[in-house]
Nucleic acid binder design. Sequence first.
DNA 1: TTCTCTTGTGTACAAGTGTTCACTAATGTG
DNA 2: CACATTAGTGAACACTTGTACACAAGAGAA
Lengths: 214, 214
Amino acid sequence: MAERQRRRPGETREKLMNAALTLVGKGRHFASLGIREVTRQAEVVPTSFYRHFRNMDDLGLQLVDELGLVLRRMMREARANVLQADKLIEESVGIFVAHARANRSFFLFMAQGLAGESKAVQEGIRSEMRFFASELANDLRRLRLLTHLSDSDLDMTSELVVRTVAFSLTDLLGVSGDDDDQIGEIQRRTTRYLQMIFVGAGHWQSDGQRGAGV
Amino acid sequence: MAERQRRRPGETREKLMNAALTLVGKGRHFASLGIREVTRQAEVVPTSFYRHFRNMDDLGLQLVDELGLVLRRMMREARANVLQADKLIEESVGIFVAHARANRSFFLFMAQGLAGESKAVQEGIRSEMRFFASELANDLRRLRLLTHLSDSDLDMTSELVVRTVAFSLTDLLGVSGDDDDQIGEIQRRTTRYLQMIFVGAGHWQSDGQRGAGV
DNA sequence: TTCTCTTGTGTACAAGTGTTCACTAATGTG
DNA sequence: CACATTAGTGAACACTTGTACACAAGAGAA
């Protein structure tokens, strides 16, 4: 055994997960990654992989769990910083974009996973989004916004918001991470989308209205 | 040369593209498909692949072109069938869902491609969506709907609508193709999303309004 | 100490990969 | 008809892949 690396517990596991994220960050799709490729990137021998994961799907699932933590951190920051309701949308979108830039690979993985190969990962991400939406609905209640909406309509609104923001990920991650102009444009556009949704929610009447009332 | 198949011109090309779609339809991600795998599914010898495509990305690009045709057919059907403005949303969503079911693999490919590995495919799909949105904006003008919106606001609205529908793809394609209950639920939900957006657009005032006016 | 558990290592192998090449049957053009 | 082009075939190449196995280094418990 030539030289065995001393590692703190769980280090190799982290290295492998980071390696997968790194490759995703370089433009690869998670579904196309192989075990050997990931271990190579992590500078670890292929067999080590099996000490921590059963296969790539398993690694993906564990990444989803970590993604959950990232999202929760983001939510906490948004709650702490968004004080006045009148700037709610702009500031929230700003925080989202900032986090997406800071954790590019993670969000890229999320965007990929939504239509990814593994049903389990797919469902995991979907579940994170549902959680996020329900928290958003709670926040809106707490801030006494959109109080005329029924619970289910408020939920629907929150879901629509979360979806719209999630879709912006595909825009955001399509441009190079330091193109401030283009990122700013995406941010403005997303803000307007959300503003329009909130205008819609503000005028929404719960029972069987015509949406196309124009 | 044991037995050479007689083929009408372009047949092998179609077979290869269909093979890729078939594999996608079976749950595989396009990014993870290999040349040999596709040729095997197409019942064609691996070398034949190179007679028609340079690599898998190239095949993907040509699939995007065909996807464009599918989308245009859908648009035409929607134009022909949506007569009264007051059912516009419901009927359009219905037509969309019907086409998504009938061309499941194609739409699955589209959903995958949005966050896919190939930048070119990504941009191709994005471009199809832009085209679709601009056509929708034209239709709204033609039907004299949302006439109080500026051109750019109408474009924005159309984009938001198209994105929302596109996102529904990920829901739609996540459920088995014959689960009518769940598909119906997704259809209803999408319809409500769009209705809310249209309510927002109906009350939208173009100049620097507050979206959170609630 | 010795025993056990976890984790990292090296080797090995069968199967699959993309791609090239030379060959040939069919098709279209003059 | 002859001829050039297109499109399908089979063999071969150098790699890469997932996974199994036996072994060993380190840590904790007895």
